Computed example of a mutant assay.
Amino acid sequence: MRRATPDPMIEARRRGPIPKDVDPTIEVLVNDIIAKVADKWTMLILEALDEHGTLRFTQLGKAVGRISQKMLTQTVRQMERDGLVRRTVHPVIPPHVDYTLTPLGESLGAAFCGVWIWAETHHAEIERARRAFAAAGEASDVSACIETP
């Protein structure tokens, strides 16, 4: 994912104090967006459109890779519903459909870019922690198999 320029409005609010009261409507929206963004297909489609620009449906499927036509259809429809993707149907025979990111979709890509950078920065630490956890699990598995008198 390419590095996006930060949105000055978001950056100013992020650096400001944490609000004391949380608007329940915003909380529901945030939980909904996180659930969708956590979906790997949404992020892969977002990345493909960010890298390649406007793509036809079949090109988008190839760029994402290993996604069924049904899942691609469901995901881009949801992204279109949320205003992240613009779908353009060309009235030709045979008809074809193009997908492109909207400015809102581009801004979500910029937000995800921060997660990408975080993962890249902390990759070695995460791998060390995973190895340590696996080793501790193996040690406890071995000790559970040893009979005590």
Rank of each mutant, 00 (worst) to 15 (best):
C113P: 01
D82C: 13
V115F: 09
V115E: 15
P94Q: 00
G105I: 03
P103C: 10
E80W: 02
V115R: 11
V115P: 09
G109K: 01
T100W: 07
Q78H: 02
R86W: 01
D82Y: 06
H90Y: 09
V115Q: 14
V97T: 13
V85W: 00
M79G: 12
T100A: 10
R77P: 06
G83P: 00
R86F: 07
P91H: 11
T102N: 02
E106C: 12
I93L: 08
P95K: 10
H96Y: 13
L84H: 06
S107C: 09
V97S: 02
M79V: 02
M79Y: 08
R81A: 06
G83N: 02
V85H: 00
A110Y: 08
V92K: 13
P103N: 14
Q78R: 10
V115G: 12
V92P: 11
G105M: 03
P103Q: 15
L108T: 05
V85R: 00
L108P: 08
I93H: 15
H90R: 05
L101D: 01
D82I: 00
H96A: 13
E80H: 03
Y99K: 08
A111H: 04
V89K: 14
P94V: 03
L108N: 00
I93D: 14
V97I: 15
L104W: 02
T102H: 01
P95V: 11
S107G: 03
A110E: 13
M79I: 06
P91F: 14
R77D: 07
P103A: 00
G114N: 15
D82W: 04
L101G: 03
G105S: 07
L84R: 03
L101H: 03
P103I: 02
G114S: 14
P94K: 06
L108A: 11
D98C: 12
D98L: 06
R86V: 10
R87V: 06
V89A: 10
V97Q: 12
D82K: 07
E80M: 00
T88P: 04
F112E: 07
L108Q: 07
A111C: 07
L101S: 04
Y99W: 11
G83Q: 00
I93Q: 11
Y99R: 04
V85D: 00
H90A: 15
R86T: 11
L108H: 13
I93P: 11
H90Q: 03
